[in-house]
Design a protein around this nucleic acid. Sequence first.
DNA 1: ACAAAAGTCAAGTCGTTACTTAACTGTTGG
DNA 2: CCAACAGTTAAGTAACGACTTGACTTTTGT
Lengths: 128, 128
Amino acid sequence: MHQPASTIDHVFHALGDATRRAIVVQLGRGPASVSELATPLPISLAAVVQHVQVLEASGLVATRKQGRVRTCSLIPNTLLEAERWLAQRRALWEGRLERLEALMQVRTSIDHAATTAPVDAATEEEPA
Amino acid sequence: MHQPASTIDHVFHALGDATRRAIVVQLGRGPASVSELATPLPISLAAVVQHVQVLEASGLVATRKQGRVRTCSLIPNTLLEAERWLAQRRALWEGRLERLEALMQVRTSIDHAATTAPVDAATEEEPA
DNA sequence: ACAAAAGTCAAGTCGTTACTTAACTGTTGG
DNA sequence: CCAACAGTTAAGTAACGACTTGACTTTTGT
């Protein structure tokens, strides 16, 4: 699994780098030129340009060039997509938990009633 | 910026790999052993073990070993932390947008009233 | 017109990381 | 007891990714 695939792949790969996240943080405060982004960073301008390219390819930032200055800004919707990806995994897992806890409730309240009874909901092998 | 720093750094770095995300997806459906995680993947068991170690170090998954089988499960709270990081960037940005739009409203409704008036809110240099 | 500013592009270096194979440790069913 | 199972560890390889330097282009202020 060494090749990039979906958009979400690009997004998370882009966010996987600390410098790029620093750039995202900065852009959260508002649009900025490449040089402005570079100023607080301990790397060369050229390196920042490369990071911006990665961020742009991932759909996390948009850039527009006017004259000699390229202005970068966040695309919040892509942030949202990443959020949703995470939220979905979490929701699935927490859904499972809830079902398990519900099952525990039933088990402990009925308890001795039916030890061999088919309490088979939500353990393994979901239908789809 | 080549060294890992905060927890969030570990988390996003872990999520930056497609194979690891596939594992997270799988674990979203419920706990699984290392072998179970490995089955659908086109890589060796040893490689999967390494990925699991990265995920565990990042705080995204917890593992427990019973007998010879190590069972892995998601830690939803870490997912939530990552979600919040993204949500915060987005909120900041969208807050800016709202303020800008509000400003536009004012500008276009008042319009010619005071071209030289100090409408200086939310443009540059936030206090803290 | 010219120099500085703001990027861009192309190589090339170097550390990191994903992966493999192979040898090894514990565990479990028969 | 022993064979298969589940995983672990170590060492090595190959590719990737972050970064640098240097040469070049375009724009802008004076």
